[in-house]
């Protein structure tokens, strides 16, 4: 069972990243849940979501002990770092999370996602790059399922972007 918290600023596509993972998980036949933060914190500009991908019935959709944390700003790391399960993983954007995790009992990965996304001409791809790393580390869904998720989640007018999104995913996977 993968329990993932994705967190960052509003507007970075945090909720969509979660939706892509959940949709990919569903495509592979898993049970999935996606729970967004919708409270007052949304107004303050931060956003997070809890995604569970599991072969068993999903109990609580609220994650108290994630085995993966994907963060796209410093406050998110500060907020969730201590919740991560022992031997869990933390994936972060190196430009947006300058102060690294203090935890030594987790595996952490820092990727120049935003930098690479700008280089690709699509700043919004930063999240996909981080998801690539997550997929590579956990193997919870295949790149094919991710591509299928893109097709499901993105509006048809954005389907032309899918090949580039997959390049971003591959960059993250092989980083």
């Amino acid at each position: 069972m993968q329990q993932i918290i994705i967190s960052g600023f509003g507007g970075q596509g945090i909720l969509s990243m979660g939706r892509l993972l959940a949709t990919g998980g569903l495509h592979e036949g898993h049970n999935v849940s996606w729970l967004p933060s919708y409270g007052p914190e949304m107004r303050g500009g931060t956003a997070n979501c809890h995604v569970i991908i599991s072969n068993e019935e999903i109990g609580s959709p609220i994650i108290s002990c994630p085995n993966a944390l994907i963060v796209m700003n410093q406050p998110s790391l500060d907020k969730f770092e201590n919740m991560v399960e022992e031997n869990g993983i933390i994936i972060m954007d190196s430009a947006l999370v300058p102060i690294k995790p203090k935890r030594k009992d987790v595996r952490s990965f820092s990727l120049p996602a935003t930098e690479k996304a700008y280089e690709m001409g699509h700043p919004a791809f930063a999240g996909v790059i981080l998801l690539g790393k997550f997929i590579a580390e956990t193997g919870i869904i295949s790149p094919q399922s991710f591509e299928e998720a893109l097709r499901t989640v993105l509006s048809p007018s954005k389907h032309t972007l899918i090949p580039d999104e997959m390049k971003a995913l591959e960059f993250g996977m092989s980083y």
């Binding site: 569903l26 996606w34 959709p61």
Partner: peptide
């Protein structure tokens, strides 16, 4: 509750 309304599941 609010979470049931906001959450996504299959």
């Amino acid at each position: 509750d609010g979470y049931l309304g906001q959450m996504m599941e299959a």
